[in-house]
Amino acid sequence: MLRRLLCVRGLRAFADGYVSLLLPLYLIALGMGPVEVGLVATATLLGSGVLTLLTGLHAWRFSYRGLLLLASLLMTATGFGFAFVQHFVPLLIIAAVGTLNPSSGDVSVFLPLEHALMSHTVDDKTRTAAFARYSLIGSLSAAFGALFAGAHEAIVGLLKVDTTTVLQSMFVLYGLIGLACGLIYRALPQEVEHGERVPGAPLKQSRRTAYTLAALFSLDAFGGGLVVQSLLALWLFQQFELSTAVAGTIFFWTGVLSAASYLVAVRIAHRIGLVNTMVFTHLPANILLVLVPFMSTLHWAVALLLIRSALSQMDVPTRSSYVMAIVTPEERAAAASVTAVPRSMASAVSPMIAGYMLSASTFGWPLVVAGAVKITYDLLLLVMFRQRPPPEEVP
């Protein structure tokens, strides 16, 4: 089962990797501006947050496999919807109810279900390593997706077709990937269908812990929403007049570095603990984020972004592992949802704000504000949870 979940994670991340870069280009090709791009990104995050919350809180009532199949169908409908609808208001609605992800991370209805399933397939000692593999595959696949985004320019030149048509075909591919995910989910063990392997329960005993973490993660998510990949790409397009191919290459390498950092995070966590790993790798990454807009050349800006990528995502597998560790097994799906939803809900307003900032000034104010907010989150997390170790760290 773990292998199938990792395979689906890779497919979804690949789709998210190229769509997050092509989304602003597609909307601009349809005649929209930075504010509209920000609003669409906000709608995707807000809608994903609502769906993720509902799924996590009520997943214990239903078949996990059935919910994953429905999510795959929704992903397919989202891709086809963006491919064949060209007006702002309908696209905004599709973005709100669909699975489109404007960021390089996993912000989706799939997340709480997959996290709960994974946690029941491994023990405490191997849990962090399993989440690291999950994050590693996701990050590498997203990196190749970002690299693939540049292919649309070559297709335009080779086939002599207009850019909008090629971009629409990329969204059709996104929908087809959703179908492929559904086929893989169908092969999950029957125990998942009947709920025998993965017991579930509503959030009760772990409610206070989950809500406290959700509040902290919401702060981090708000900062992260200011620099979702679609808007970071838009800033690079505006500031340095990059081509899609060059931007795709940059995000490919940031993804590769992030992926490599997941494996390093496991070793660091074994030495200093999950919470310390989350904080002491995240802090320097956010300081670098604040400094990026002050770089006068593309080379320095990219250098800081690359170094940041090698540090900023080490908290992803450790955060997921930590949440699953300190809540009861029956409440994992609900806890995963409640703590993951801020990745969508709190960050939903941020892209709209970032879009406004970028329309008012080419200076990277979203990066500065994002770094400051995320530094605050790091310090609060350290103070509030340093004395709450997971079971494997208890002497």
Rank of each mutant, 00 (worst) to 15 (best):
M1A: 15
C7T: 14
V8S: 04
V8D: 01
G10F: 01
F14R: 06
F14C: 04
L27K: 03
G31K: 11
G38N: 06
G38M: 00
A41L: 00
L46A: 15
T55R: 06
T76Y: 13
F82R: 11
H87M: 12
H87T: 13
I93D: 05
I93H: 10
A95H: 08
A96R: 01
V109A: 12
L113D: 09
E114G: 03
H115C: 05
H115M: 13
H115A: 09
H120Y: 13
D124P: 01
D124V: 14
T126F: 07
T128I: 12
A132E: 04
Y134R: 09
G138C: 04
G138H: 03
G145P: 08
A151H: 08
A151W: 12
D162H: 13
T163A: 11
T164P: 05
G175W: 11
G178I: 09
G178Q: 09
G182K: 06
Y185K: 09
R186W: 15
A187G: 11
G195C: 04
E196K: 15
V198I: 15
A201S: 14
P202H: 02
S206Q: 02
A210R: 02
Y211R: 10
T212A: 15
A215H: 01
L216E: 08
F222I: 00
G224I: 01
V227Y: 00
V228Y: 04
Q229K: 11
L234G: 01
F237A: 10
A245V: 14
A247L: 15
F251I: 05
F252I: 08
A259F: 03
V266N: 02
I272E: 09
V275M: 13
V275C: 10
T277G: 01
M278G: 05
F280S: 03
H282C: 04
A285M: 01
N286A: 04
I287V: 15
L291S: 03
P293S: 05
F294T: 02
S296P: 02
S296A: 14
L298Q: 10
L298V: 04
W300Q: 09
V302L: 06
A303M: 13
R319F: 11
R332Q: 14
V338E: 04
V338H: 02
A340P: 00
V341K: 00
P342C: 02
A354F: 00
L358I: 09
S359G: 08
S361V: 07
P366N: 03
L367Y: 07
V368H: 01
V369G: 01
A372F: 13
V373E: 00
Y377Q: 02
M384I: 14
P390M: 06
